[in-house]
Design a protein around this nucleic acid. Structure first.
Lengths: 203, 203
DNA sequence: CTTCTTGATTATTGATACACATACATATTG
DNA sequence: CAATATGTATGTGTATCAATAATCAAGAAG
């Protein structure tokens, strides 16, 4: 039997700080860095610790062939453009290698007044890299000429297709061999909503 | 024979290594880092060695195939989501058929702290719909597991490839038949910058 | 006289040691 | 039985050390 010392606590298994309970949840190592980069790297590590890892899937609203959205240019996000020289590094907002900044809204929504978004339904434009669930940026101020990818409503059905305007007639051409081009007849009720400028595809 | 004490050289002022003749041309500091980030940071530092002023030639960073940007979520653009029922019309901000609104920045930049953008160079991922000039949204808080498309620096070269982690080994797999998968050997200096969440392609 | 060799000298660099801070488990106390 | 006290174990930042690399100029070699 052990005596009863006046000291509290004592040696026991399992005591002590748990492994991985540190700031980074992993073992650490001491390295030497150029002085000017120390704050940059510390800052980066701080940001890195914040969010663990998860990317929820986008909610996919139900609709027919497409769903539209429209910009309301009230937002602004500046994205610093880094030099290609930071080849093996990591981007940091405090980095010197920023060459330019990019705002998704500004970059892709040139004419907020005439631009809207469409969520793609179906894969009829698969070969153009437009897939189900993608979001298209559509500008209706661009002339829908031959060859452009357009959002068109034909006979009350909304689709995204490549516009083909030839002497032989006008067609809405899918880019997927499982689909056939849609002829635009005289009596067809065709409305071109606009020209697709960008496709945004999430993995 | 040669009784002369071979005292070549000798003590003299001004001798010795010059200051700033190190790898970084500046004083250094010792810091503690999470182990997993040590190679990342070392790689990064390698790429940021200063240009030779009067110093001998330094290893120049190789050309890369991507350019990076980083978000700075200061912007906000609400994009009204229209119902697919507005089939034959065009969307209007005042329209009743708005179902939801979408901001490009908010929608695609979930974690501004850990997200950056990369402008793609080359067509090695053509079959995944990633083309030269496209902009990728990259989140480094997402775990780079098997099958993810990642931005990786391997031996100081930046690439976008699909990550393949099998029992047989790790590969960086291009999605273009003109390219061959890159084996990641034990001695390879692989750094995963982050996981590609979205590709934005303009027509 | 010119060029090369070589030791002396000093900064760099990675590794290690150490002190302190933090987290945890449980005996002791009330 | 709950709250507290105390010892133990690990994390974190800084100091220190030894090996390496860079540089200079005195001698040696030609």
């Amino acid at each position: 039997m052990s005596n009863t010392p006046k000291t509290h606590g004592g040696k026991r298994p399992g005591a002590g700080r748990k492994k991985g309970s540190g700031l980074y949840n992993e073992p650490t190592k001491v390295v030497r860095l150029p002085e000017s980069q120390v704050p940059v790297i510390k800052e980066w590590l701080k940001a890195r610790v914040k969010s663990p890892a998860d990317a929820p899937e986008l909610p996919l609203p139900k609709a027919n062939n497409a769903q539209t959205l429209r910009p309301d240019a009230s937002s602004h996000v500046d994205l610093p453009l880094f030099s290609h020289k930071v080849v093996a590094g990591f981007p940091s907002p405090a980095d010197d290698n920023i060459e330019a900044r990019l705002d998704l809204n500004e970059h892709y929504i040139r004419n907020p007044e005439t631009t809207f978004l469409v969520r793609v339904q179906g894969d009829s434009m698969k070969k153009s890299g437009i897939h189900h669930g993608d979001i298209l940026v559509v500008d209706r101020s661009i002339n829908p000429v031959d060859g452009k990818i357009v959002i068109a409503a034909i006979d009350s059905e909304l689709t995204v297709k490549r516009l083909s305007v030839k002497s032989t007639g006008t067609w809405l051409v899918p880019e997927n061999d499982d689909y056939t081009p849609i002829p635009v007849k005289e009596e067809s009720n065709l409305v071109i909503w606009g020209v697709v400028t960008t496709v945004m595809h999430s993995f």
